[in-house]
Design a protein around this nucleic acid. Sequence first.
DNA 1: GAGTGGTCTAGACCACGGC
DNA 2: CCGTGGTCTAGACCACTCT
Lengths: 248, 248
Amino acid sequence: MIKPVSRSTLVGTLRQQVLQEIVDQYQQKNLKLPPEQEMALQLNVARNTLRQVLCQLESEGFIIRKHGKGTFINPEALQINVNLQELIDFSDIVRKCGHVPSNTIHSLKEVEADAKLAALLEVPQGHRLLQVEYWIYADGAPAIVAVGWCARDIFSTALDISAWEKDSYFQVLQERAGRMVKSDRLKFSTLTVQQANMLLGHETCLSCDSVLVIDSVAFDQQGTPMIFGKALFDTTLIQFDLFRTIKE
Amino acid sequence: MIKPVSRSTLVGTLRQQVLQEIVDQYQQKNLKLPPEQEMALQLNVARNTLRQVLCQLESEGFIIRKHGKGTFINPEALQINVNLQELIDFSDIVRKCGHVPSNTIHSLKEVEADAKLAALLEVPQGHRLLQVEYWIYADGAPAIVAVGWCARDIFSTALDISAWEKDSYFQVLQERAGRMVKSDRLKFSTLTVQQANMLLGHETCLSCDSVLVIDSVAFDQQGTPMIFGKALFDTTLIQFDLFRTIKE
DNA sequence: GAGTGGTCTAGACCACGGC
DNA sequence: CCGTGGTCTAGACCACTCT
């Protein structure tokens, strides 16, 4: 079986190393990082390369850089649980919220693309789609209901339910279709549970009164839509965070 | 009155120029941008500087870069209305959703910080806070209810309601407290309208069944919390988008 | 003035896609 | 092979903070 390639770039490695340094220093209550020049020297990279990493970490909120003073660890950032900025699997979301995840495939079927799905996935109307509905639990309590659609023909082999019963949704796509999710676009809305049940056409397992709805279209490297997903979250169990920084 | 400074950096200017180029080319149905070398030459900047801008635009979804092929405009990106990644005012959110905004100050009062607010704003419990409740309308229909708290003593002058009755929340802070919001952290949840009314202790103007709740803490350049805000959105009127890209 | 982050440049070399 | 984006370096100079 072809394994996902882990091309390691200097920047990627650096990022890991600097993040580790941040966590270590944080535990020792030392919030000030060394000057950029010194860090670059120690890590044996150009200052520009290091700065690329530091810029990334700043925009994600891990550090705060103060002109003329230095670079400091942002204690706030280490308290975030689920960063909306990261593309991660449902199981990891549950895990990051401090719960033990488990999941079941509620249903798997082939359907025809209606007008809306066809437009989103850029396939002709009536195109054969795979529709998968997942239920994800946090410590046994229903936390997420997710429905995903993708074109049947992106898979070269037949797929049974067991293929989908793994932790990673993205992994299935990479292994079975050879395509990676590179980016996605989310849309946020809310529904009461009654409305959600009506939308899905059956009772969901969720026990809360209202749900957070995230519609997502995932794209591959070429910008071609691969999956459309609709996920319902019980926000008493799953809490998303988003750290934002002013541009410019 | 001290005006907000608009320090223009090369990268900032470049960004505007490249974005303009993208919009222009898009309208001419030409999705391929010139090679980086050529663009850099035309714009009279180093390729690295241009690349910095292109990286930004790629992570925001405006362009897709294909190794060995070129840089292409992402038509998807130009269809997004409210990008969650941007820190913008409520009025702008309404505007970007295609509606005409208007707003009223529902209430303005001084309160004492309870344990939760004190922790979030990093002030002692019982500290004097200003509490402002806004109602924002889209084409006259109630769309957002927002409550904000900040320490009374960050303002040097007394504040009456009229001071808050402007479009920009951020502007009030900059003009009256001399401090800029640099970043913020959001938390997402949902409530039914009944629950929301109970939380606020009075009837809201919202006419939907469930609301999207965004709790935000805004920080200044130093990483000091300035405002805590709780905003309730009618997602039938306000739709947030978020474009994400895989890191590394 | 010393220390530190912010900006920008010039150029080398690598890796991918297509002819 | 060429054209293109991806990575990395070295170093110049500016701007802010503190003493």
